[in-house]
Simulated scan of single mutants.
Amino acid sequence: MAPSTKKHASVQPCIIPGGFTVLSIQFDSDSSAQHKLYIKEHKVRAEKSSHRPLDRTLFVLNIPPYCSEAVITELFSQFGSVESVELRDQPGSSHESGPKLSKFFRPASKQGFKVGYIVFSQTSGVTAAKKHSHDVPLVVSTEQRPVMTGVQKWIQTYRESLIHPDKLQQKVDSFMEGHDKRKEEEAQRQKKEAEQQQEDEEGWVKVTRGQKGTKARPHSEAANKRTLQKETNKKKRKELMNFYTWQHRNTQKEHIAELRKKFEEDKQRIALLRAQRKFRPY
């Protein structure tokens, strides 16, 4: 899309409660209906990510489904050079745990309105977008860059969903190589920690001298795991010993109760024999 010739600083933007600026878009030049985007400078103190610089990132709400990352890039390029565009189902941190998966292994994205994070190359891009008037809509589909919708978009989505076996095999091999490499690095790290932190049988940790300029670490992850396992085994043995002690005491109580019962039965038998005068102790 060609850069706009309008001066964004001379128009009056529309700001709503919450600090969001209203930005109008329409699908094509012949369309009379307009859609509203809500933009705001991305300022989150808790998030310290190089992917979303706080002074060059624009937060966008209410992005329609027909706007892809490429379309958003073209729309906002008139305000300045766009470095990256990220579309998500809901706001959240950009940090993702684990390796980055290929599109073949990701779950299908939801077809609905999204939120976006647009990173400009310069701070002036965010300022220009915030100063754009809501009465001047941005055109999504042009002759130079048509955006497909309806049946054409369904056909394109279906074609993109077909995976070529060679490409899939290449992605799988690449992922497995990375997985094996990460496993090997983790094993080497654990081995190195085990060598540096040697623990004897009584739980004492031998502190070894590390590299120059680093502090010695008396505890490592492997040592902590072994100590925790020892405490767990000790607790189990104690519980088992307590169970055996309780069982022994219960057996003694039952034996004493049985002796008392036999003693009472003998007393009753002796009393009966005396009543019948058949008792001859000598």
Rank of each mutant, 00 (worst) to 15 (best):
K236L: 10
K236R: 13
A257R: 04
N242L: 15
K267H: 05
E239L: 05
H255M: 14
K238V: 11
K253G: 03
N242P: 03
R249I: 07
K267S: 10
E265A: 09
W246L: 06
E264N: 14
Y244E: 10
D266Q: 11
E258M: 12
E239Q: 08
N250Y: 02
Q252W: 02
K238D: 14
R249A: 09
K267A: 05
E265S: 08
R260V: 00
L259C: 02
N250P: 00
K261P: 01
K236Y: 02
K253Y: 08
Y244D: 11
K262G: 03
K261C: 01
T251M: 13
M241L: 04
Y244C: 03
H248R: 13
Q252T: 03
K267Y: 00
K236I: 09
K236D: 05
N242G: 07
R249C: 06
W246T: 09
K238T: 12
N242C: 11
K262S: 08
K238C: 13
E258G: 06
L240K: 14
R260K: 15
I256P: 00
L259R: 10
N250E: 07
E254F: 09
L259V: 10
K261L: 00
D266A: 12
E239F: 02
R260M: 04
K267L: 05
H248F: 08
L259N: 06
K261E: 13
K238Q: 15
